[in-house]
Computed example of a mutant assay.
Amino acid sequence: MKKILFVLALSTILSACGEGQLKVQDQNVSDFQVQDVNATNFKEVIEQGEGIILDVRTSEEVYSKGYIQDASLLDYYDEDFREKISLMSKDKDIYLYCASGGRSIEVVKMMEELGFKRVYHLNNGLMDWENAGFTLVKDALAKDDKIEELSLDEFEAMLVADKPILIDFHTVWCAPCRKMAPIIDKVEEDLKDMAIIRRIDLDKSKEVGKAYSIQGVPVFVIFKDGKEVWRHNGIISEEELKVQLNNI
């Protein structure tokens, strides 16, 4: 009888500890953390943190309903969704949402498997966000004509140049990539006489990404005489990029 009462008490304690948090893998065997939060808390962690906002709805949903400012937009139903999500920085906090929470819960499980560290999951998705009266961005994403698709042979032929080459490894769905695009364009304009700058679509140039071990986006690599001489993952300032190019 005592044993039965002990088991029931332990079950009650464990249930209480799990409130407000998605149940994933045993915390003793994984350092993955996920917090299931409401819209108010979701907005707060976005504003206070430096992570990545991830919208996993379809493009039709995004353009008809709008999206949270600065979100990376990646369709859960894309056949290569898992491959694309692997390109995101796994050490950064991820602020994850979908329309009502169903798809994003499945993505949480996937992120644990892929080695992400911490996810804030918007409980009930954008339904909760809109019910809280928070705004969405409804403008269409600007088209970027400078993104290139290259085979490995084409890429390596491009590296044979008499100037340093800065490569911006980029995807169209990545919000940090979109933020960096005008900065890269400014660097290109200011240093056009001493460097070559190209923006490569990593989604469509998979051979290149695999050959050069590109693990995330955005990634910036400088080549000289066909060889890699510098690499940086993530957002970087215009000034730092110019310093690196001038030092090559």
Rank of each mutant, 00 (worst) to 15 (best):
L241A: 04
T40E: 14
T40M: 09
I236E: 06
G49A: 04
V172R: 11
A16K: 09
L96R: 00
G101L: 07
D145E: 15
G102C: 01
V187A: 11
Q244V: 06
E240L: 06
M1S: 11
D26Y: 03
D26V: 00
I235F: 05
K23E: 15
N38M: 03
V45Q: 13
E106N: 15
Y63A: 08
G234P: 05
K92Q: 14
E207D: 15
I94L: 08
K192E: 12
E156R: 12
D153E: 13
P218W: 01
W173I: 02
I94P: 01
G102L: 07
G226H: 09
E50K: 14
D162L: 07
L10C: 09
Y212N: 05
E79A: 03
Q244S: 04
L74V: 03
E207G: 04
L141M: 09
R178Q: 14
Y77E: 15
G51F: 05
F220I: 02
L74I: 09
Q244K: 15
I197L: 13
V187F: 07
E47Q: 13
V34S: 11
H232L: 04
D168W: 04
M88K: 00
L87M: 10
H170L: 02
E60D: 14
K43L: 01
V160Q: 15
E47T: 09
E228M: 12
E154N: 07
F6V: 08
D185E: 15
R118I: 00
I53S: 01
V229A: 06
L141K: 12
K206S: 11
K138L: 04
I94Y: 03
N38I: 02
G216P: 04
G115P: 10
D80T: 06
R118P: 03
T12D: 02
E47Y: 02
K192C: 00
L122F: 07
D168I: 03
I105R: 13
A9R: 07
K23I: 10
Q244R: 14
F42M: 06
S30Q: 09
I105Q: 12
I94M: 04
K23W: 06
C177P: 09
H170M: 10
P182Q: 10
H170A: 00
A157V: 02
L150V: 14
D75W: 11
A142K: 15
E154V: 00
R103V: 01
L5P: 00
C98K: 07
G49L: 05
M127V: 11
L159I: 04
G115Y: 10
G101A: 06
I235R: 05
S100E: 14
M127A: 05
D93C: 02
E156N: 14
E19N: 08
F116T: 01
M194S: 15
G18H: 09
G234N: 06
G133Y: 10
N28T: 09
E112C: 02
I196F: 02
V221H: 11
F220L: 15
W230G: 00
T135W: 00
G226N: 12
A132S: 14
A16I: 14
S30L: 08
A211R: 13
G216N: 09
I94C: 01
K227I: 01
H232Y: 13
I235K: 05
H121R: 10
E50A: 10
L54V: 12
T171W: 05
C98R: 10
E112A: 05
I222E: 04
L126T: 11
T171L: 03
F223Y: 15
V45K: 14
Q25N: 13
T171Y: 08
